[in-house]
Simulated scan of single mutants.
Amino acid sequence: MIRVHVPATSANCCIGFDSLGMALDWWATFQFEPSDELIITGCPKEYANEDNLVVQSFLKTCQHLKKEMPTFHLHIDSDIPFSRGLGSSSTCVVAGILACDAWFQAHLNKMEILEIATDIEGHPDNVAPCIFGKAVCSFMEEGKPRMMIIPCADYKCLAMIPDYPIVTNEARKVLPSTLEYKDAVSQVGHALCFLQALQVGNEMILAKSCVDHLHEPYRKKLIPDYDSIHEQCQEMDLAMWISGSGSTMLAISLDPTKLNQLQKDVETKLSIQCRQMPIASKGAWVDYE
């Protein structure tokens, strides 16, 4: 049996639109074992077929390796919610690639894995931290992903997960087509300070640097509870952002008492599900049984 463990992720990280992602210590597990036919368990019935993203990613990797697609029993054990901005699709993509690599003992390196995952996902901002862990900044150059791992101080994360999904394609429709020059300059400055504060543990600067001009001013309208949570986070000097395209919002802090207070308020006043976790120190990995 091949077992693949893949972390949830938070993309964009406020000021890193389509370029900065963070791995979360919240894991999905995917088990693969030989079978005479394709069997998929542990997911909704409508996904238990050959169009399953895990299966399609396995197939894509077989094509990359020039191998025949085997049949297997795939069991998915994940409570990472769909369409909430926590990288559920990226966990499936990375799981399929790593399982195929393990199945054929191909020994793909992590950059090869990232290239296949980016080709499937269309961008590296979620799959990169999924593969490498920690925080990862990335960009595309001539169709190839380029990335750097960002070491993180001992921040803890609070995911605040509303009970409604947001589809990424729909969230992209609300974005502007142009940006004023002064806003672009502001974005760069805030992003550079955010990265440094994330590494050295300067929580005050981290919170102050969470000022985005590219997506949050537009996507927050899709999340009715955003403004009240954002206002409380500002009062508490907490870094907070829309995770991916939403609807999840993520706050991070070095002080667990702050996150505990925010969680209590969000759960009692807004009835929003919350979950605390550290930043994942490593990316996806494989074990065998």
Rank of each mutant, 00 (worst) to 15 (best):
S88L: 12
A207L: 02
N126L: 06
T248E: 06
V286L: 03
A117Q: 10
H64V: 10
E141V: 11
F72E: 07
C210W: 00
H107P: 02
A284G: 10
M160R: 00
C92N: 04
E37D: 14
K144W: 08
Q273R: 14
E141Y: 10
Y164S: 02
M277D: 08
L206Q: 00
S186C: 11
D225Q: 15
P7M: 09
D18S: 08
C274A: 05
C210L: 01
C152M: 13
S228A: 15
D225A: 15
R146P: 04
C13Y: 01
Q105M: 12
K182S: 14
Q31M: 10
G21W: 10
Y181H: 14
L20I: 07
I131T: 03
L53A: 12
D287P: 01
D36I: 02
I242Y: 00
D265S: 13
T71W: 03
I223Y: 00
S138E: 09
E112W: 04
L206T: 00
P151G: 04
E68Q: 13
K134S: 13
G16C: 01
E180G: 08
C233G: 02
A48M: 09
N202M: 03
D154G: 07
Q261Y: 13
K208H: 08
F139E: 04
I120H: 07
S83Y: 10
D119H: 15
R219Q: 02
E289H: 13
L214D: 05
I150W: 03
A95E: 10
A184Q: 09
M148L: 15
V211W: 06
E267I: 06
M147F: 14
D237C: 04
L262K: 00
C130P: 05
K182G: 10
M236G: 03
W103C: 05
D212R: 00
G96D: 04
S83D: 15
F104E: 01
T168W: 00
P124D: 10
L59A: 15
L108V: 01
I166T: 04
D51H: 11
P165Y: 01
D183E: 10
L65K: 12
T168M: 02
V286F: 02
E33N: 13
S228T: 15
R219T: 01
W26C: 09
K110I: 07
M204P: 01
R275Y: 13
E68G: 11
M240I: 14
A128V: 11
T178K: 11
L238Y: 00
L53G: 11
L262C: 00
G85Y: 10
V167C: 03
L222C: 11
I150T: 05
P151T: 01
A48G: 08
L179T: 11
S35G: 05
G246F: 02
C130R: 06
S57H: 12
W103Y: 09
D125C: 01
W241H: 09
A153G: 13
K156S: 04
L222T: 11
Y181N: 09
Q63V: 12
